[in-house]
């Protein structure tokens, strides 16, 4: 799409900047709050620049909570492993549902849709009982294995592969590649934008997951960050200053992942000749 809306480029920019402000302000506000004292946040001013600028909140979360680094590590390791397997398994399943003809294809697709519909609050208890009988409570695999496949993104990958040009696969088949070779050598490399999108979502989802680790992990050494952060929320008073600081530390990795994989949308991938 080159220059889609010729004359209206100015209008487009104004719109984009306005929407940018709408999304940016809250984030900036959180950032500025992370440098304020609780007293200043609670006094209810709407100033963006802190009256008294302080690094205390950041210092406090690392000093006062000796396990903060450990939680960061736990979150990172779980998120990385989960993301890796999800990319692989979801794409495989999505591809099979979109492209491979096998009995039960439609049924499995509907099963996956059906599974999506059930609220997480409800499967939590049975899931917890299953993990317990596997002896996986308080372990990394207890958090990782149930989430290495994600019905949502199987569904998403299926929808992406529906549009995938058949010619490529036919050409690969003529070349004597079987389904697996075709998938890994032809299809997957060309699905980069979809994989990038998936990476962002899975990483973020795993990084932010709250309910499952809250129930599965009871040993403080095994907490992930969201569970650990929770400790800054007092029973009667919420320590917004600490929460804001911790959230900033917490948000950065997810944002970095996003910014990094974002380039796959900019590069673009072309299927057919003409451009190389």
């Amino acid at each position: 799409m080159k220059k889609p809306f010729h004359g209206s480029i100015k209008v487009l920019y104004i719109g984009l900047i306005l929407y940018g402000i709408i999304t940016f302000i809250p984030f900036i506000w959180a950032l500025s709050a992370s440098f304020k004292s609780l007293a200043e946040i609670s006094s209810g001013g709407s100033n963006f620049i802190p009256n008294s600028f302080t690094f205390d909140n950041y210092k406090q979360i690392f000093l006062q909570e000796p396990r903060f680094g450990r939680w960061l590590f736990n979150s990172a390791i779980v998120a990385l492993i989960v993301t890796f397997f999800n990319l692989l398994f979801n794409s495989m399943a999505g591809y099979a549902l979109a492209r491979v003809r096998f009995p039960g294809n439609q049924f499995l697709f509907f099963l996956i849709l059906a599974v999506l519909v059930v609220p997480a609050q409800i499967t939590l208890l049975p899931k917890f009982l299953i993990l317990k009988s596997l002896g996986w409570l308080n372990s990394y695999q207890g958090l990782i294995v149930p989430t290495v496949v994600n019905a949502t993104f199987i569904f998403m990958m299926r929808q992406f592969f529906l549009n995938f040009p058949k010619e490529l696969e036919e050409a690969a088949a003529l070349d004597g590649l079987n389904r697996f070779e075709t998938f890994f050598q032809v299809v997957l490399p060309l699905a980069k934008p979809a994989l990038a999108a998936q990476t962002i979502f899975i990483f973020m989802g795993s990084w932010n997951e709250f309910l499952l680790p809250l129930v599965v992990m009871s040993d403080p050494d095994m907490f992930t960050l969201p569970i650990g952060l929770n400790a800054f929320k007092g029973q009667y008073i919420t320590y917004w200053n600490y929460i804001m600081a911790a959230s900033m530390v917490f948000t950065l990795p997810a944002l970095a992942i996003y910014a990094f994989f974002n380039r796959y949308f900019i590069q673009g991938v072309t299927f057919t000749g003409g451009k190389s």
Partner: peptide, 15 residues
């Protein structure tokens, strides 16, 4: 074809 379809689905089906 059917066999490879099921193989593609195996990890998903188990988890």
């Amino acid at each position: 074809e059917a066999l490879s379809g099921y193989l593609f689905m195996t990890p998903t089906l188990i988890v």
